[in-house]
Design a protein around this nucleic acid. Sequence first.
DNA 1: GTAGGGATAAGGCCCACAAATCTTA
DNA 2: AATAAGATTTGTGGGCCTTATCCCT
Length: 411
Amino acid sequence: MGYICEYCGEQRSIVYCRSDSACLCLSCDRNIHSANALSQRHSRTLVCERCNSQPAIFRCVEERVSLCQNCDWMAHASSSTCLTHKRQALSCYTGCPSAVELSTIWSFLLGDPSIRDLTCEQGMGSMSITDCQPGDSQHPQVKEKSQDMSSALDEANDLHNLVKSAPFMGSSMPSLDNELHNVELLVGSTNLTWSKVRNSGTKGYDDPFSDDFNMDEVDLSIENYEELFGVSIDNRDRLFKNEDIDDFFGTKDMSTAESSFQGVNAVEGSAVGKVNTVKSACSNAASAESMMSCKTEPPTLCFAMQQSSFSFSNLTGESNAGDNQDCGASSMLSMGEPSWRPPCPESSMPSTSRSDAVLRYKEKKKKRQFDKRVRYVSRKTRAEVRKRVKGRFVKDGDAYDYDPLHQTRSY
DNA sequence: GTAGGGATAAGGCCCACAAATCTTA
DNA sequence: AATAAGATTTGTGGGCCTTATCCCT
């Protein structure tokens, strides 16, 4: 991948469109995404300045570069000096923002001449920072997006119910709370987090997901964390140390744990200086799910991961499970909207509720399609009509005498 | 409470070949 | 530097196999 816009092939690529999986210059971005209402919904962010092929998630203030998850990890986890670099979570946008609006969400681009040249005269300067401005949720684009996400969020809600029902939740909850004191979350120019929003008691807030999530009832403030879970500070000081992960996975093989937890970068990336202990979190929905379905008390950790994702990350998401940059759990975790419901007064749900939640969760898990993106339709078309024997392609010239009624296992 | 075995689910592999990409002249 | 030719790699879907998990006895 190069630095060049994949559309015009001339200008330097600036933004990454998740829906199109393309790096575009600002001019092409504007042209393409002002074409129609659907394209306007495409969520875009800056392109990683290291690999130039993935959507940037953070901006390193010290180095003045925008980095994707992988590059951020590689750049900052390797040395202790880099570890302290202040990183700023990058917002996504949709619509066709003007130069001023872009510079509003990405203030560091003010000096970029390519931004200054950007104008949007089609009357569609309807930028929406969908992930970090819940107050803007009345924006039609946000509402539309909320519908697209409802399924995934609903699933996340089920997950939450499962987690919530875990009887051990109250006692062994490893917390991020302490670490949160060290967190400096910079969300572009909109220094806003859900916890703050919740905590501020924004009554008039028209939450797009309220139907499913009863957000009005949710108080997700970090400050109320203890109150939420009835966990003492002492207990919560147990941040994820290696032993915790080992205990969790019943293994000392950190590679296993790490592979299952890839992606915490999204969390730690914004949590300055707390990277030492935890390398990663659920990298994708599947990981999260596997953890959830695990019988060895995974919800404890998962819950913490979710909490951290929601609280720290403002990644938006066009959910793209197949996209390794899209922090995976993204489809359910990093939508920007927390899925919590207020904790039950009792420490655990009734068993029926839990089993119901399990059932719903499994059903949705079955239905869910992991965004397998077909890159070449022509190949797909050909593969679909190609002759097969026991699922395998056969040579065009070969006799096609396969009789499915008399198939025998040849393995 | 534990072990064993059947049922079920999930993930990965395999195949051929056109298209895409890379290398060399 | 541009072009052509050849070589190599990639991607596609359905069925089967292996492994893991679930559930019952």
